[in-house]
Design a protein around this nucleic acid. Structure first.
Lengths: 220, 220
DNA sequence: TAGATTGTTAATCGATTAACAATC
DNA sequence: TAGATTGTTAATCGATTAACAATC
């Protein structure tokens, strides 16, 4: 069993919680934190916190807890925060415009470098900071601008076609905001951000509760 | 062990896959589908599909598979699709505007009935179909319009305050699009749709792959 | 009927929780 | 030192996969 194996084998559930911890640590500036403290704030058992953190290289100190700065540094490494990424948005509708102009990405070294749309009437206009380009330019622009991530914000029918073009143009990852199922080759990372899923999960919880009393919201 | 227990006790992972099946069935119109067919399309083992579907009342037929219409009907029941919901959006920025005017909610009997903002300059203007109301009217409007779900699309600092007001006004669920952690009492359903989480998961996958070759994208 | 596909039971696997020795 | 909190091993729990009898 090798020692330096990277973070590829983190249990899926652990990875999700590591993100919670990372968010918590970013928000709560202090020197040290204990598993009890952080777990309590996030609804995770302290044993679980310690188990999760045991996958990291950094070790806490008995009687003291974990040094926040160290812990956060390693979590940033895991999430590749320092990695500089260029992102292109396809679809300059309301959603595409919102994603393109979202301010929160900068913190994670991710820069929107292009916004595309099919509609000739939109091409050339500005949506916030971004001039809309024609999708016809997509392959060329993606290569030129070294786009790493393509975000799909087009209507469902067009999603697969856009995905194919992005893949051909060599993006590393696709971030799919459309509710349609798309296929990409295994070497391309695919992340679905289907918003109707969230709505259905909420509706499910409401339906379940009206059926009988209590029950906490499922996370997934 | 009672028979009619509702769908409150579905395993979390199963619920997530049921949503995949539901989406698949909505897209692929036909009479029957087998566990092999559907599983194949979704990257789920056929045994897993059958296991998941065994939690439902409707049973498939050996040699034939599952009747799509029946299966979808029960899945719609599980996700409370028929449930009529009123939703209010707080925050009339780009994201709030996009959510408010998103067309995909109608299909799930969910209607946006109000859009709020704090900024007096925005109040009274229209964002798409919606006139922006002042957050000062929120409690009153939420009650009058019988809002069930409140979507939070305000900057991080304001998120908790908005959540508190929504809760006081009696919403059943909160849909949090801000990246901040908010607290709600246990009787209120909370769903986080933090978009930066998706970005970090993508960055993680990219970081892992550049460390050593392959690895599929984690779902969560 | 023969064969394909289901539903379910049993076996395996992985993740969570409990327990406790190590240690600051 | 005594006591709190870690890291890790063991026990439990739950979810996935395998196997197979039931059945259309």
């Amino acid at each position: 069993m090798e020692k330096t194996r990277g973070y590829g084998s983190l249990p899926k559930a652990t990875l999700g919680r590591l993100h919670m911890y990372y968010r918590y640590l970013s928000l709560h500036q202090r020197d040290f934190v204990s598993s009890e403290e952080m777990g309590g704030a996030l609804g995770v058992l302290p044993e679980q916190v310690r188990k999760d953190l045991s996958y990291l290289r950094y070790k806490g100190k008995p009687r003291v807890g974990y040094r926040v700065s160290e812990l956060r540094k390693e979590l940033e490494e895991i999430f590749g925060v320092e990695l500089e990424l260029n992102m292109a948005i396809v679809g300059a509708g309301r959603l595409g415009g919102a994603i393109a102009n979202y301010e929160g990405f900068e913190r994670y070294r991710t820069r929107v470098v292009a916004l595309f749309d099919k509609d000739p009437a939109k091409v050339g206009t500005y949506v916030g900071k971004f001039r809309v380009r024609s999708v016809d330019e997509l392959p060329e622009a993606v290569r030129e601008l070294q786009v790493d991530v393509g975000a799909i914000c087009v209507p469902p029918d067009a999603a697969q076609e856009v995905a194919d073009r992005l893949v051909e143009s060599g993006v590393k990852a696709i971030w799919n905001f459309s509710p349609s199922q798309i296929k990409v080759p295994p070497e391309v990372i695919l992340r679905d951000e289907d918003i109707t899923r969230g709505l259905l999960m909420i509706k499910h919880s409401i339906a379940v509760r009206s059926f009988r009393g209590d029950d906490r919201t499922p996370e997934l």
